[in-house]
Nucleic acid binder design. Sequence first.
RNA 1: GGGAGAUUAGCUCAGUUGGUUUAGAGCACCUGCCUUACAAGCAGGGGGUCACUGGUUCGAGUCCAGUAUUUCCCA
Length: 877
Amino acid sequence: MKLSTEYSPVEVEDKWYAHWEAKGYFHSEPDEREAFSVVIPPPNVTGMLHMGHMLNNTIQDILIRKAKLDGKNACWVPGTDHASIATEAKVVRMLREQGIKKSDLTREGFLEHAWEWKEKYGGIILQQLRKLGASCDWDRTAFTMDEERSKAVMQVFVDLYNKGKLYRGLRMVNWDPEAKTVLSNEEVLYKDEQSHIYHVRYQIEGSEDFVTIATTRPETILGDSAIAVHPDDSRYTFLHGKRAIVPLVNRSIPIIFDEYVEREFGTGALKVTPAHDVNDYEIGKRHELEVIEVLNDDGTINENGGLAHYVGKSRFKVRTEIVKELESSGNLVEIKPYAHNVGRSERTNAVVEPKLSLQWYVDMKSLAEPALEAVMTDEVEFFPKNQKNVYKHWMENIRDWCISRQLWWGHQIPAWYYEDEVFVATTAEEALYQARAKTGNHELEISDLRQDEDVLDTWFSSWLWPMSVFDEFSTKEEIDYYYPTSVLVTGWDIIFLWVARMIMAGYEWKHERPFKHVYFTGMVRDQKRRKMSKQLGNSPDALELISQFGADGVRYGMLSSSPAGGDLLFDEKLVDQGKKFCNKLWNALRMFKNLEIDDSLETPIENKLAIEWFEQKKSAILNDLASNFDQYRLSEALVSLYSFVWTDFCSWYLEMVKPDYEKPIDSYTYEKSMDLFEDLCLMLHPFMPFITEEIWHKLKDRKEGEDCMNGSWPKATSYDKEIIAKVEKAKDVISRVREIRNKNGIKKNEPLSVLVEESKGAQDLLAVNGVKEILIKLAVLSGIEWVSGEPEKSVGFLSGTEKYYVEIEQEIDVEAEKEKLEKDLAHAEGFVNSVEKKLSNERFVNNAPEAVVAMEHKKLADGKERVRIIKASLEKL
RNA sequence: GGGAGAUUAGCUCAGUUGGUUUAGAGCACCUGCCUUACAAGCAGGGGGUCACUGGUUCGAGUCCAGUAUUUCCCA
């Protein structure tokens, strides 16, 4: 078998993905095995693969592939959500480029364009996930607006309404004037922005006195309906019972007294605009103030403000103009720079406008209760745990969920109005039936009813995802088998938007948790810890990365530095390390494949020890992996595999069993090595599926369907710690000899003679079959002999409590040697002192567990032995 | 303003119930090697009073309190 010295992922990855898919390995049907199900956090249908997706989906793929190897029936359901705001914005933009205005279209006409767009571009991201190796069950691909999912949304809406957990209410909402829709609190991002605070004076009615207020939004004075001051503020007691005149508008408004006002802030006097500020709205309710809406839905000023020359102009333009006008009228006292928190729409970045509006709300209190309980008792278990606090705080302060969105793309709210009545039903026919019954008017037709124009928040469909994706096949068997799902993998940034609501929905309709575990990933950030985003342009192109480093390399890079919940500072070096790791594996394969196998050869004794050692070590690693997987310490699992492959397998095992140059290998060693390599492939497969599949097929002749992806996870057995410890000791001796070569400029292949001082430790070590041979082979020795006392012309070293000497020709640098020994001595004595101190403490000896005390005695004995040996060496010098 | 976390090597992070030879990894750094699996490599090395101050304990990187710095969440 001729193999290139470099592994090239490109051909390999596409080949194996097509093979797995053709074999149907990704598809799952219920059967007698234990189910392991995962629903993908549905990316936006407008989405393109970015770093966050890669991290998130790599983790899911690892869990799914591991579950498959463990013999479970793994099912990973892919899909997308319809992303109301983002998609509608995209479609509107596309139409505008074609010269079509949304307002020129009917709702049906617009939706036709939107679906067309969806069919054409939606789901690109699902194609991209294949490049990453994602083993999704593509037959189950779901969409939040497809028939099954939509049906679920309608049913749930009606059910909540009938239970009285859904209502329509006039509330202050977050209004996005650009998208012209309401936003939930979670969709508004607050940031400190530099702006100005304006001090404006209002004349007191019937006097020449003024009261000065401070505001950041002078344009809203058009909607002012009061001035408020603190009742205990002595500066303003004279204002009792007075009224003020709104500048420019010349409207007379009351001066009210309310404890909400902060005396220290600004001038201590506050203008009150109930229609355009949440707090002012509350004050307005207390004092029964007039509510004057001066803004249109698109953020322009309307005629209610009473100043015709501002009508139709944007709020920002009016702010500039009104400041000028206030200045010329003598009402502007001063302008100060001011930093304050400004809320912007997550989608359009428009400054969010508080607006009074009639919307549908979900009453969250009763939904939250079981969902909070479930997480607090770990029935739904969070990884990492600290997210429980965040969740608890939100759930205990939960507010009702505004679910109407003033858009067309989405699930139109199943509520029909007739006169003052509202009829909520899954279909228009059903609503009509209700309307006829209620009104007694049997002549009513559907056309007499008016359906709510709004659509539902996208999350109102995604919160049903773990249930709705399994309804597709509409037999109960599906959902009974796969629900609750095993684990949800998602970023902590959508814990409220999505995770919390799914838990609520699970308990509300299935009376059961939607998933057993939630794994919160961190955010992918750049080297400066900035979140990766399109705006910053600091995110590498995901597909470009894959083609440059291979999917396995990228997966390695994404994961190797990403503990659960911890942020991942992305660095191309990490994926490059992954690529190098692939190359390392590849070359280990090449080493074996270049060898000639000789059946007649005896197996060298050092090979038997190497094989034995590696098998034991493998069991140890498998045990570590098991606990790492249990606790979702995936990056740690990968790190341990990395060092097991690179250090233990390549640097040590291979060097131990490798025959001399151009010599053949014995067949036992070869077969055993293939078995071990095969296990390595299985262990690495969840993390790096492509290269492991490729190597798997090159290791042995495989039967049809005998694939790595389809294999069984190697069994962890109890293992012999003793043999591992002995080989570790041997490795230490080898390293020490190499160090002496390095320091003395002795060539690597020049055989050296090593002498060992007789001791129990050394005897035990060399008594192990194969140890002596391994030392000779890897340290390149001419021989190992026993000695007592320091030999001439030699350099000594200490390994554990054993003293070794390397005979060398070179002149020995006595001073340097002395210096080093003195340093070692200081260290060893310091160690002995600390242990002695511990052991001389009676309370320690009496209170500490026996095993701990025994260990301290052993430490002391070993330490003293080392001190003795170093002192002896120093004396000789 | 309220809350949660973080602080361990130059950088990024592990360190699991307090005890396992006076702290580990990767990267970076230094030295020597183009040795027939791999220079995308090999061998070896240096580098840390575990933020600070106190406390609990026989014993603290690990538990508690305070301080400093810092990140995030909520308002």
